[in-house]
């Protein structure tokens, strides 16, 4: 009997979207969050720029 598709097996066999790079959501959030913090601390983003 054929094994039913599972989350683990699907994750192992699903290729990345063509022409795209899969970035882990956790790392993406960490990167974007920290970049924004640094931009605020060095004065690139100031209070008046955030509506």
């Amino acid at each position: 009997m054929a094994k039913e598709p599972s989350v683990a097996s699907a994750a192992a066999t699903t290729p990345a979207p063509a022409g795209g790079l899969r970035i882990n959501e956790d790392w993406a959030a960490t990167f974007v969050g920290l970049v924004l913090v640094v931009l605020v601390l060095v004065g690139v983003i100031v209070k008046g720029m955030v509506p």
């Binding site: 974007v32 920290l34 924004l36």
Partner: peptide
């Protein structure tokens, strides 16, 4: 509509 990404980025900012 990336709830997880947006909330995690918000939490990193909350850390500050």
């Amino acid at each position: 509509f990336r709830t997880e990404f947006l909330i995690k980025t918000g939490l990193v900012l909350l850390g500050a």
